[in-house]
Computed example of a mutant assay.
Amino acid sequence: MVLVACGPADEGSGSRSGTPGVTNDSIVLGSSLALTGHAGYLGTQTLQGAEAYLRYINDHGGVHGRKIRIKAVDDSYDPPRCLANTQKFIIDNDVLALFSYVGTPTTVKVLPLLEEAHVPLIGMFTGANRLREPPNRYVVNIRASYYQETHTAVTNMITELGIRKIAVFYQYDAYGFDGLIGTELALKEYGLEPVARGSYIRGTLDITEAVEKISKSGAEAVVMIGTYGACARFINLARDEDYNPIFYNVSFVGAEELARRVGGGNATVLMSQVVPPPVDDGTDSAASQYVQLMNKYFPGESPSFVGLEGFLNARILVEGLKKAGRKLTRERLVDAIESIRNYKLGPGMFITYGKHDRQGLDQVYFTRLQKGRFVPFTDWKTLEKMRGSH
């Protein structure tokens, strides 16, 4: 399924500029992401957030007189499909850049193509270390990494809560391995290692064995590197069996969908985020702008952490396009993004890139599930009372 977003299909039919995906009046981007399947919520939210900003830009004349369109193709979070979609984008030679991919196993699969074709990939909904080290000229990350998320969470659990027995529940693929390694590295700093490791196969909800293995270990906290369906099933099954550790999830899990599937109950469910809460606080922050533009272009749709990530992807893309100028090429776009310094997205949020700095943001925020939704918190000591009530 192909969606042509941010404008009608025949928009931008002006003469070619000589650069793939660029005409006199349009810029076309290619995006392979999950629009259906067990990660469909993540892809649709990412795309919607990006579209909210790009529609706003297009309504105000575009960038240097060009409107921006996204060719979005569903890969259902399946690596071979993502690879095939990306090969088609490159062979057809009709997109300037790749944009807002979703997931580690899918995105990692296309890395060799980027190097070979010199096609930039801008803004991915994944914190995989493989996309950051070693630095790749054609890979532009916006958000913090899984290593940063898990390190900050593990550090707080050990130093603030005194927890020493931490297990890992992970998806058995590149995404899960990345989170597992990040957790192991963080634990190693304190002379620890996971008391148990339990996994499941991507695309399934077969988590019973993992729950049994981890619950028997007596882990006081479980680091969860999975998708919302599997993580919610793990939490619900553990709760049914009266096993109540702290359940900590990384940002990729998807806060709103996990909250919906876990529901109420007394489980202590935490999640790290790599963007601030998606609320309009009356400031000129990117979060406030995102909520306002969602209300304008997608009335009735709820803002989300995932959608805000997509929105930030689009903000950085547009800033790069502006800096690249009217004589747009792939190389000029990459050079332009590398030149971004202290680009403000909100209070305490500044983006800076460089030749060896391929990630814009480093902030990690924490939320906890409360009354059916994830709310921000900063005081880890308050969690002790929550644990004591279980």
Rank of each mutant, 00 (worst) to 15 (best):
S31W: 00
E149R: 05
F377P: 00
V275Q: 04
S31C: 14
P278F: 05
K88R: 14
M386P: 00
P245A: 09
Y343S: 08
A255K: 12
S339P: 03
Y41A: 10
L369E: 05
G226C: 12
P105D: 11
G40Y: 03
N24A: 14
E212R: 15
E319R: 11
D284I: 09
I235D: 09
T183H: 01
K371A: 13
G191S: 03
G37A: 12
K381H: 14
N295D: 15
V334S: 09
D379Q: 13
I90F: 04
H64P: 04
F305H: 14
Y146L: 07
F99Y: 04
F177G: 06
R202I: 08
A72C: 07
N342S: 13
I27E: 02
P278V: 10
G12W: 05
C231M: 12
K381R: 15
Q48E: 12
Y56R: 02
R202H: 15
T329Q: 08
R130C: 06
I122C: 01
Y190V: 08
K188M: 07
V306E: 11
S302T: 14
G65L: 10
V102Q: 03
C82V: 05
Q363C: 04
P347R: 15
T86I: 01
A167W: 07
G162K: 01
D281K: 13
T367R: 15
S199W: 14
A34Q: 09
P347C: 06
K322C: 04
N129G: 12
R132T: 13
G61A: 06
R69Y: 00
K385V: 12
P80V: 05
Y53T: 07
G310T: 07
V279I: 13
M1W: 10
G49F: 08
V2E: 15
V2S: 06
V318C: 00
Y77V: 00
S100I: 06
Y175Q: 06
L369W: 02
L192H: 00
K371H: 14
E184K: 14
E338S: 13
N24G: 13
N342P: 07
C231R: 06
G12E: 02
T159H: 08
P277N: 12
R260V: 05
V291Y: 04
Y41I: 10
V275Y: 11
F374V: 03
S15F: 10
N342C: 06
Y353H: 11
T183Q: 09
V102S: 04
F366I: 04
E212S: 15
G198W: 11
F311K: 09
I70S: 03
D281Y: 06
G307V: 03
Q292A: 12
M124G: 01
P277F: 12
E193V: 08
G123P: 01
F169P: 06
V102A: 02
D92L: 09
T204V: 11
R66M: 06
E209P: 01
G65E: 02
V2A: 08
D379T: 11
